[in-house]
Structure formats: structure tokens, C-alpha cells
Simulated assay, not measured.
Amino acid sequence: MARQPVSVPVPNAFDVLCSQYAERLPARLEDLAGPIYGTIDLPLHVAWSDRRSYTLNRDLLIAQWPVLRTLISRPARHAWETASPELATATATAAA
């Protein structure tokens, strides 16, 4: 008797990346209470790329989002805008 192959659903790569990015986001933009000027140096276990200095400020992020969103991947952009709809609103306002 021949065995029937077991069908295992393969997750969509976009959905997997969006999920991974979403796990790294702050719970809400209000949690980004860093300075408007200056930088924050993140520890290596948080930012493992060559760049570890950032300005983490909610208002600055919203103001810069229309440009920043063009510099990141589509899954990262989707995760940020889904978690924080005010970022999508900032983009629509800038385009108007």
C-alpha cells in the first residue's frame, strides 16, 4: 500500500518576516521616549549590525517616517505601520 504524502503548509516568506519584525517592535510608539537631539547607543545584543547609535523618539520617528519607510524592507515597513497606524497616517499626510 502506497503512503500518501503528508501536506505541511509552507508559511509565506513575507508573513514570516513580518512576524519576526513585529516581535522586535515597541509595544507602542509612546515607549520611544528618547531625546529629540543626540543619540542612544544600543547594546550589541539589541542592535547586532554595525550601526548601534540611534535617536529613539516618537515624534521624530513620525516626522521622519515618510522617508524612513522607503529605506527599509517591505515586511519591516508593514510590521511598523500595522503596529503603529499613526506612521501610515504620517505617510498619507506627507503625500497629500
Rank of each mutant, 00 (worst) to 15 (best):
P9H: 07
L68I: 04
G38K: 09
W80N: 02
A33G: 11
A88L: 04
P66N: 05
P11M: 05
L44H: 09
A96M: 07
V46M: 14
D41G: 02
M1D: 07
W48R: 12
P26S: 07
D50H: 08
D15W: 08
M1H: 10
I40W: 00
V16T: 10
R77Y: 06
A13N: 10
W48M: 06
Y21F: 05
H78W: 10
L71Q: 13
P5N: 15
L60W: 06
D15Q: 15
C18I: 08
W80R: 03
A90Y: 06
Q4D: 05
A33N: 14
D31L: 01
G38M: 10
A27E: 14
L87W: 02
A92V: 03
R51Y: 08
T70N: 14
A90R: 03
V46D: 12
R3W: 12
L71C: 12
L44S: 09
A76C: 04
L56V: 04
Q20C: 15
A13F: 10
G34T: 06
T82P: 02
A95E: 15
R3G: 12
P35R: 01
A2H: 15
A96L: 12
A92M: 01
F14G: 01
S7C: 14
W80Y: 09
W65Y: 03
R69T: 08
L25S: 01
Y54P: 04
W65L: 01
A63Y: 04
G38T: 04
T89N: 03
Y37Q: 12
W48S: 12
W80G: 01
A76Q: 02
P11H: 06
P11D: 14
G38R: 10
E30P: 01
H45P: 02
S19Q: 12
F14L: 09
E86S: 09
L32N: 08
S84I: 00
S53M: 13
S7M: 11
V10T: 12
C18F: 05
D15A: 14
R28A: 15
V46F: 08
S19Y: 14
R3C: 12
Q20E: 15
I36S: 07
A92P: 00
V46S: 09
L60T: 07
P5F: 09
V6S: 15
L44C: 13
A79I: 03
E23K: 07
D59T: 04
S53L: 13
R74C: 07
W80S: 02
C18R: 06
Q20D: 15
D50E: 13
F14I: 12
A13C: 08
L29W: 11
A90H: 03
A63G: 07
A95K: 04
A79M: 03
S19L: 10
V8S: 09
L60F: 12
P11C: 03
L29Q: 09
L71T: 11
V10N: 10
V10D: 15
I62M: 09
L44R: 15
S84C: 11
Q64I: 12
I40M: 06
T82G: 09
T91D: 04
V6G: 04
